[in-house]
Design a protein around this nucleic acid. Sequence first.
DNA 1: TAAAGTTGGACTTGTACGGTCGTATATTAA
DNA 2: TTAATATACGACCGTACAAGTCCAACTTTA
Lengths: 134, 134
Amino acid sequence: MIRLSKKVEYGLIAIRHIATKPAGEIVTAKEIADTYGIPYELLSKVLQKLTKSGLISSHQGMRGGYALARPPVEIPVSLIISAIEGTRQAIVQCLSEGPQTCNVFTVCTIKSPLTKVQANIERAFSTMNLSEIV
Amino acid sequence: MIRLSKKVEYGLIAIRHIATKPAGEIVTAKEIADTYGIPYELLSKVLQKLTKSGLISSHQGMRGGYALARPPVEIPVSLIISAIEGTRQAIVQCLSEGPQTCNVFTVCTIKSPLTKVQANIERAFSTMNLSEIV
DNA sequence: TAAAGTTGGACTTGTACGGTCGTATATTAA
DNA sequence: TTAATATACGACCGTACAAGTCCAACTTTA
């Protein structure tokens, strides 16, 4: 029906793992990859995206790693997803990338009903924050 | 974030188009394809799937075409989607295809929270029926 | 200064989606 | 009886993208 990408899965697992540690504790990408059997380099990229969007903070160099940048309550699942996926946030193309990408836009009859469903899904993801999945 | 396939889009547009006609009236795939600028042969396959799952009825031969097989109220959007997509109904693989397809199943920590979201989405689609999008 | 980290670009590979083509089959109207 | 009009269906193609890999920086600490 609808599917989250592996990257998002990995991201959720990873950020949850970080959240289970005492606040401020730094955990490496390798530790997470080993713990869950996730490909290290793929995970690294995901963590980099989470870093860029300010959900986690990174610490380079030896003894470096990642830690939460805010308390879990302030990290909605929706933010985690959009941080990793970037675009592609709507259930139909024209809702996320605009009318010009849709060849049936003017005659399309399902936009408005889908918008409701869309809102529903978004709400499901945005009302759930990291503290609830730890 | 999450995206419906073109096939599902076309299917929704098509079945809605059929639903706007007086009950029992037969409409051809060509008419729908022309009206909305949808590739004819792709649409045909979608309509065939909808036929196989009993949502619409097909009439072969000259003056043939498609009509609703039940009243719109008895056609939830979720059925339309699953008729077209077949598999791939869960937001994560292990929820739809079982544990053996997931390499991190035993250590995965996000299954249960995602199950909730999953249920949420399913509810959004199954409570909405065809009569509501006409 | 070496080791342990992150950063990030380039690359490969598999697969699924969107789309097309050709043909068989069924039905109707002339 | 036959031509026209429809669905049914399998095979095929191209491309985009997801998933994963490789590698070469750069940064910090001990």
